[in-house]
Design a protein around this nucleic acid. Sequence first.
DNA 1: AACGATTTGTTCGTATGTATC
DNA 2: TGATACATACGAACAAATCGT
Lengths: 269, 269
Amino acid sequence: MPDPLWRQIAEDLRRRIESGEIGDDGQPLPTEMELREHYRASRNTVRDAIKWLVTRGMVYTQPGRGTFVTQRVDPFITRLAADSGSSVEAENSNFASEVTSQTRKPVVSVRRVEIQRAHGLPAAELVLPDDAGVVSRHQEHLIDGVPYSLQTTFYPMALVERGAARLIRAEEITEGAITYLEHVLGINQAGLRDRITVRTPRAEETAFFRLPDDGRVAVFEITRTGFDEDGQPFCVTVTTYPADRNQFVMTSGNVPDVPSGRGTSPAPG
Amino acid sequence: MPDPLWRQIAEDLRRRIESGEIGDDGQPLPTEMELREHYRASRNTVRDAIKWLVTRGMVYTQPGRGTFVTQRVDPFITRLAADSGSSVEAENSNFASEVTSQTRKPVVSVRRVEIQRAHGLPAAELVLPDDAGVVSRHQEHLIDGVPYSLQTTFYPMALVERGAARLIRAEEITEGAITYLEHVLGINQAGLRDRITVRTPRAEETAFFRLPDDGRVAVFEITRTGFDEDGQPFCVTVTTYPADRNQFVMTSGNVPDVPSGRGTSPAPG
DNA sequence: AACGATTTGTTCGTATGTATC
DNA sequence: TGATACATACGAACAAATCGT
């Protein structure tokens, strides 16, 4: 039993694209009408085939222009390591990641602070009862004007009550929230745990990262939990990155510098 | 300008699914014909809406049966840490990851050994000229019969010529390849670097992991490069995991044990 | 085991809207 | 402004999988 026609066409298009026969060098693919004649199929069937390629991130379409092959792009490389310094996330040195591309300038953008009842992930990571208060501090990160990551950090409201008042103000904590907490409350971040997952983007993420709204581009979700010297969690940072242009690097032991990035295949919207 | 009709229907279905109004408790969604009447739209338009939900992994369809809400599964949790012991990847203790679920039994399956010319990623990571020989050792990992990961390790052919003959035999290196290399050649793994990326699965991966063939489920690709005491890379291991049921955890410093697995994410806003 | 009803999958056709050049 | 090209939406027919009788 052969594959459905639209799938056969998709595979043939993939082959022809990869061999450079079509769509090379920024040239658009043949139009749907041309493909319709070439494969002796209806326009809808041809569109099903193209849709399959779009889902794979292999091509993208533009109304009125045509269908184009997606170009490779240099991924952002983020170091995940306990010892690494912080740059983008200057305030929350909590999330001690680092953009290794030298020429790019990280910018921390608008900030939103909310007080909520603990629920879901933050409550679970912070081991709080479901109705305990938590402060959430939200920020957007851009590099050279390009959306880079979205980040929300949760702190137990108890920390504010114990004196860390600046946590609930929508101002940057320039010295870093962790440093601030250490100065004010004597809390020392003795350990941290990172969780790395992947999921489809939410509406806000799709908008901020300017991702295609069909959910074909996933986002990394990195959850960093900070622990004090008693092994108690005192903050959780959730950061999301578009999976099509990000890569995470982690080293241990003696490793030479400069990990050269590998291109993945991304997509304009 | 309002959203297209199919999108409005999709959003409404999402809302009704999340509120538990429809599709709850394993019950199928209304049939396409019922939805067609409910929304006063054509069947194709309803199908476009459902397709959007399918792409998001929110529902799945079964021919002849109906459309169902996907239920969340407990993710596999893999530790990525320098100090963690190895279990699944017993041979390549190189890739020192560990399945934390206690009850599940890891099994290393068939193995394939090939000798190739260096190219692409392995050549880049090993810093080899493009025509140098490399040995690739491929394995499949299953847990309780469930496909878990696909793994390929590359070694420079030079290592074999220097005496590591067992690298080119399709037999398990029970004591671990890294231990073997240390014994035979005195190579000591002094450091390692992990790269974490996400991409759409290849055909083999789609088949092995039994993923839907529309590429909506991505795979993690974790590339671990081992370095000797001179900072020279001597092996590269590429491992892929389905992104929909895997999660990676990395700890540093003093962190209490047993990170409880979690599926979804928070709601900042 | 066979059949019919139900439900999703595939493929065609057509018309109209909208973005681009 | 008109031509081109993709997007949306409709309708229709048949195929294939599933399930109950």
